[in-house]
Simulated scan of single mutants.
Amino acid sequence: MGILSGNPKDEPMHYGEVFAVWSFLTTAKSLVAGNQIHLNHAGDKDLQKLLDEAIQSGQQEVKQLEELLKENGIGLPPTPPERPKANLEDIPVGARVQDMEIAAALASQTAGGLVACSKIMGESIREDIAMIFGQIHTQKATFGAKVLKLNKEKGWLITPPLHQNKTDN
């Protein structure tokens, strides 16, 4: 029986897996803090709900990935401090991040997370790591659909130029 057979949790992580998980965790921690800041700036109630969901999901990812790294004897990246709640009215209008900008950032971070999850799944040789990122990918895809729907409903979606076939000349 080889080193890479049996229970995947007993297999060592390869350097690529270590770096990918550590990097994803670092980003997840930063996004939780960033979304907490965006929550302070958001005025739209539907956007606030999505930000709350993103924060909760991010915190779950952090917990799961910290556990994985600890089990494998890998040091953890630093965690940004929790952001305090602020009153939207206390933030000067010119300093506020607008709802449309927050929603665009949420869509972008979700898309980036999908790509990162796919990359990690493809590079993993440990099935448990690939499965973790498969689950995170599925959650992000579902969340991304909610963000897209909100952006469309609120009129915040900025489309690139739309191509239309010109068959009628």
Rank of each mutant, 00 (worst) to 15 (best):
120 I>C: 10
111 A>T: 01
2 G>I: 11
11 E>A: 15
68 L>V: 13
10 D>Q: 08
146 K>E: 06
31 L>I: 03
69 L>C: 04
80 P>D: 09
85 K>T: 14
125 I>T: 10
90 D>E: 07
52 D>L: 11
30 S>H: 15
64 Q>I: 12
165 N>M: 10
168 D>T: 07
103 A>F: 01
12 P>D: 10
112 G>T: 04
33 A>V: 02
158 I>K: 08
158 I>Y: 00
49 K>W: 00
121 M>H: 07
88 L>G: 03
38 H>Q: 05
31 L>W: 03
151 N>L: 14
152 K>W: 08
139 Q>E: 15
168 D>Q: 14
23 S>C: 05
22 W>H: 08
92 P>D: 10
133 F>M: 12
105 A>W: 02
137 H>A: 07
153 E>Q: 13
73 G>S: 13
30 S>I: 10
11 E>Y: 13
119 K>L: 06
70 K>A: 13
40 N>T: 03
22 W>Q: 06
150 L>H: 00
40 N>C: 04
70 K>H: 12
18 V>T: 12
25 L>G: 00
23 S>P: 01
142 T>Q: 15
43 G>D: 15
126 R>M: 04
136 I>Q: 13
3 I>E: 08
96 R>Y: 00
131 M>Q: 15
15 Y>V: 10
125 I>Q: 15
168 D>N: 15
107 A>M: 01
29 K>A: 05
129 I>N: 06
85 K>Q: 09
44 D>A: 00
166 K>G: 03
14 H>P: 02
7 N>K: 10
59 Q>L: 12
91 I>G: 06
115 V>E: 14
79 T>M: 10
163 H>G: 09
58 G>K: 00
16 G>K: 05
118 S>H: 08
51 L>V: 11
77 P>Q: 07
90 D>R: 00
102 I>F: 05
49 K>V: 02
123 E>P: 05
88 L>A: 03
117 C>T: 06
97 V>P: 03
9 K>F: 10
161 P>S: 02
109 Q>G: 13
79 T>R: 12
10 D>A: 10
160 P>T: 09
103 A>W: 09
145 A>E: 05
118 S>E: 11
72 N>Q: 12
120 I>Y: 03
101 E>G: 07
67 E>L: 13
27 T>S: 13
4 L>V: 06
30 S>Y: 14
39 L>A: 07
116 A>P: 04
105 A>M: 03
21 V>P: 03
41 H>R: 01
144 G>T: 03
134 G>W: 01
50 L>D: 07
118 S>M: 06
169 N>C: 08
113 G>L: 01
146 K>L: 07
158 I>G: 05
74 I>K: 06
160 P>C: 02
43 G>T: 15
31 L>G: 00
23 S>R: 08
71 E>G: 05
63 K>D: 11
114 L>T: 01
134 G>N: 07
34 G>D: 06
2 G>T: 04
88 L>N: 09
79 T>F: 03
131 M>L: 13
78 P>W: 07
69 L>N: 09
67 E>F: 11
77 P>A: 06
27 T>L: 15
5 S>M: 14
144 G>A: 04
169 N>P: 15
162 L>N: 06
90 D>M: 01
6 G>A: 09
86 A>D: 00
148 L>K: 01
143 F>A: 02
154 K>A: 10
13 M>L: 14
146 K>W: 05
70 K>F: 12
80 P>W: 04
100 M>P: 01
49 K>Q: 11
38 H>C: 11
121 M>A: 12
1 M>N: 09
122 G>D: 02
